Simulated scan of single mutants.
Amino acid sequence: MEKQEVFNILVEVCQDEVVVENPDIDLFEEGLLDSFGIISLLVEVEGRLGISVPITEFTREEWNTPNNIAMKLAERE
């Protein structure tokens, strides 16, 4: 899995290029990701990357930045 692939998905889900420009931005604090966005993100990740993440394992503290999301997904490959 390429980190850029994860960022591309995040750009689509968050509808903002800032996730690529600042991969350490807190997506929740900045209002770029909400409950609906989390579901969209997990559906896209499973469909495009083949990585399944149960919603029960998605915590805002660990999945709050583009870099953290890419790292957590890489652990699941």
Rank of each mutant, 00 (worst) to 15 (best):
E77A: 13
E5L: 12
N67V: 07
D24M: 13
E44H: 09
E62D: 15
E29G: 05
V45D: 03
R48E: 12
I69M: 04
W63S: 06
E57L: 10
V53T: 03
C14I: 13
N68K: 15
G47Y: 04
L73F: 10
L42I: 03
V11P: 10
G31F: 07
F7H: 02
D24N: 14
G37P: 11
P54H: 11
F28L: 00
G50Y: 09
E5R: 10
A70F: 04
N68D: 12
W63M: 06
Q15N: 11
E44K: 14
M71Q: 15
E21Y: 03
I39A: 14
G47H: 02
A70K: 05
V43M: 11
I25A: 12
G31R: 00
S35T: 12
E77M: 13
D16G: 08
E21K: 08
T65S: 09
G50T: 07
L73S: 04
D34P: 07
K72A: 06
L33A: 01
D26L: 11
I39Q: 08
E21S: 09
W63T: 00
E30C: 09
K3L: 05
C14L: 10
V53F: 02
N22K: 05
C14P: 02
E57P: 07
V13A: 06
L10T: 01
A74S: 14
N22E: 12
V45M: 06
I69L: 01
I51Y: 13
V11Q: 10
S40C: 09
R48A: 09
L73I: 12
E62Q: 15
L27P: 02
E17H: 12
I51T: 13
S40N: 13
L32I: 01
V43L: 14
I51A: 10
T65R: 05
G47E: 12
E77C: 10
R76N: 08
E2L: 03
V45W: 00
T59E: 04
R48C: 04
V6A: 04
R60E: 04
K72I: 00
M71G: 10
E30T: 01
M1L: 11
F28H: 06
S40G: 02
M71I: 09
L33Y: 03
R60C: 08
D24Y: 08
I25F: 08
V6N: 02
T65F: 03
N64E: 08
V11L: 08
L41Y: 04
A74C: 09
V20Y: 02
E12S: 14
E62Y: 12
D16H: 15
L32G: 01
I9R: 08
E75Y: 01
N64F: 01
F36Q: 11
P23L: 11
S52K: 15
V19S: 00
L41H: 02
V19C: 01
L32M: 05
L41V: 13
T65I: 06
E2P: 00
L42A: 00
S40K: 13
S52W: 14
G47L: 02
I9H: 03
I69K: 05
R48I: 08
E5I: 01
E62A: 15
E30L: 06
F36M: 15
V20C: 03
F7D: 01
E61V: 07
E61Q: 14
F36R: 14
